[in-house]
């Protein structure tokens, strides 16, 4: 395992600048989840770490050593792509073995290693099948086995679960966590799904428009107080323009009157049923493990959750609510 560090990395494709002085440190033996919207430069960042792309400026370091000019196969890095990227003319076993040969170990040792990984990833019974005969989830697990068999110092995961159905996604997320525990590999996991980033990452960084705008070693704390409006939007916080609002309902309105300030707070900051404010229920949505309530408060909309066992309002109900003001951030400009 290795510490991966990106220092002031810039990358452009023609006139489009994708990475703008990006700096990030991924600690050894942990999963760093990088959350970002489409086009924010997540894949480019991973490809630069892997050596599949060259940065225009900046450096990639592994354990303090500059590897920017090394070829991909010389970096000790593995990557699981968004698409499984298996060779279509090889069986699952041959795909894994193709990568394993790089270790230059005796054939039976490589074979034992593949069988062990196949067991861990539950692909023992599909090793003789070609990619065309496998489901998306099976292909992605084979790709994961191929990435792990070379004993990488760093494993890069580029939205590996984006094309996989929800049920399988859950088990693969757990599997990736288990691999981190059992093999202790440094992983960088990029995704556009905030839940996935929070569930998988030991550390979470938010990438917007080619730069890291927020990061934290405690994902849930970062989620509650990201400290940057773009990060807050990605975490689906309530974003309330406070300076322009004439509504007297918000406690901070007076302080920011006439400015373009925005108040952001997570749905978890809203306490339904008690408090100084009132809203009208616009919608009630059943989500996995919780119920989302959409409230209209004056000109704005506030999303919040009904706590487990709490009273579920109906559409059209007027309900009172309060705010955990410690979780409210005001972003200016």
């Amino acid at each position: 395992m290795a510490v991966v560090e990106l220092r002031e990395v810039w990358k452009s494709y023609g006139a489009k600048t994708v990475l703008r002085g990006l700096s990030l440190e991924a600690p050894a033996g942990r999963i760093t989840a990088v959350l970002g919207p489409s086009g924010s430069g997540k894949t480019t960042m991973l490809r630069i770490i892997a050596g599949l792309e060259e940065p225009d400026r900046g450096a990639v370091l592994m354990d303090g050593r500059d590897v920017t000019s090394l070829e991909p196969r010389e970096r000790g890095v593995s990557m699981v792509f968004q698409y499984p990227a298996l060779f279509p003319h090889m069986t699952a076993y041959e795909n894994i073995m193709f990568a394993a040969r790089r270790l230059r170990l005796p054939r039976d040792e490589l074979d034992a290693r593949i069988r062990m990984l196949a067991n861990l990833l539950e692909i023992d019974d599909i090793l003789d099948k070609r990619p065309g005969q496998l489901s998306g989830g099976q292909q992605q697990r084979v790709a994961l086995a191929r990435a792990l068999v070379v004993e990488p110092r760093v494993l890069l995961l580029d939205e590996p679960l984006s094309h996989i159905d929800a049920r399988l996604r859950e088990s693969l997320k757990l599997l990736i966590r288990r691999i981190r525990v059992e093999l202790g590999i440094t992983m960088i996991y990029v995704t556009h799904d905030q839940d996935e980033a929070l569930e998988v990452g030991d550390k979470v960084a938010v990438l917007v428009d080619g730069v890291i705008v927020a990061e934290g070693d405690e994902p849930y704390t970062l989620y509650l107080k990201p400290g940057h409006p773009e990060a807050a939007r990605l975490f689906l916080h309530n974003m309330v323009p406070v300076g322009l609002s004439d509504q007297p309902v918000w406690p901070w309105t007076g302080n920011f009157k006439g400015s373009d300030a925005v108040a952001g707070f997570p749905p978890e900051a809203v306490r339904l049923g008690e408090g100084p404010w009132e809203g009208v229920v616009e919608d009630v949505v059943a989500q996995r493990g919780r119920i989302l309530v959409v409230l209209r408060v004056g000109e704005t909309v506030v999303r919040c959750y009904v706590p487990h066992g709490g009273h579920v309002p109906r559409t059209g109900d007027r309900v009172r609510f309060g705010l955990d003001e410690g979780l409210v951030s005001v972003y200016r400009g």
């Binding site: 599949l52 196969r73 990557m79 990227a85 990568a99 191929r146």
Partner: peptide, 13 residues
């Protein structure tokens, strides 16, 4: 294509 070239560059000897 990327599906072939990327893993090839990472995993071929």
């Amino acid at each position: 294509s990327r599906e072939i070239v990327d893993p090839l560059r990472l995993y071929s000897k």
